[in-house]
Design a protein around this nucleic acid. Sequence first.
DNA 1: CGATTCATGTAACGGGTTACATGATTCG
DNA 2: CGAATCATGTAACCCGTTACATGAATCG
Lengths: 173, 173
Amino acid sequence: MEQRSLILLGLLMSQSQHGYQINEFIERNLSAITDMKKPTAYATLDKLSQKGYIDIQLEQEGNRPTRKVYSINENGKQYFYQLLLKNLSSPESMNYQGDIGLMFMDFLPIEESLPALQERLSKNKDLLEIIKQTPSHGEESGVNLAIEHKIAMLEAEVSFLEKSIKKLDLTSE
Amino acid sequence: MEQRSLILLGLLMSQSQHGYQINEFIERNLSAITDMKKPTAYATLDKLSQKGYIDIQLEQEGNRPTRKVYSINENGKQYFYQLLLKNLSSPESMNYQGDIGLMFMDFLPIEESLPALQERLSKNKDLLEIIKQTPSHGEESGVNLAIEHKIAMLEAEVSFLEKSIKKLDLTSE
DNA sequence: CGATTCATGTAACGGGTTACATGATTCG
DNA sequence: CGAATCATGTAACCCGTTACATGAATCG
């Protein structure tokens, strides 16, 4: 909830936008950062306006469906800074779903677990390549930092897997 | 759902257990791996038995509340191996909540964002220390691999933050 | 004798996703 | 002229959490 709000408010900090525009942007440019879906975005924008953080203006171009243009207001900016500082100072305390598999690996013979891990490795490498190709956003913007962080974590993942596979391979001989 | 099932089935692979026992184990020993709560575990165990993956035996010691002892059956073992292989071969495709903050960092003056990041760093270091103190489970078990993975990722997080803070610090001078 | 442990759950709620609905417009 | 794009939503559902309920046994 709060993460969703932070994203939406952050996007509105740059400029007022309507929902469709926001959703397009998220899908096209933020897929590496968030997986927020359209109905969630629309619903969250509604809540934010109900709570008085953003204002709505109706707009219409020609005969197109009317669109709701959302603008962050003073109240919303305060809230945004609050959420932002909280986010920046919070550690990443997450659980990796992949750890579950590792934990039970011993129940499989190495002939099965090793190829599986190799598949995991190669898929992670693919992800890494894809994300490395996302265009850079100016010199040293926050957006870039976020992308660099994701890359750093993926690289850590890859090198961990390579190390582990090597070790497993040795013990199997 | 599937992650929860994988954990529970995996725990039952070692030995038949009752719900309370399982929940205790998760709380005490798997807090670094999963955050599954008791009601979720009980409910998932129910579902697994309904689907015919585990069997239930009622037991009573003295006047203690009767307990349900769950045992994984042949069917369940098949399912377990299936989930395990899928997990082992899947890449970690996750979104870091912390990336959201990074993305919008530019909206704050460095005097505010820098201390926030430093706080994030120090909290991550604390987490790292705590997890490094979890006792080792024999030579090279899967459980250890999982812990080592978590440590590796936390170390990557820490070094990324250190690097970024240093860079920010320089540009602020 | 009060607090903690043992043991299992239910009910309500929250957050988010999927699938569906609508209807005009522009593109090929 | 059919398909994709523009634009916004609703309804049903799923997964999981929090808070609550129960009651005996053991520990300090």
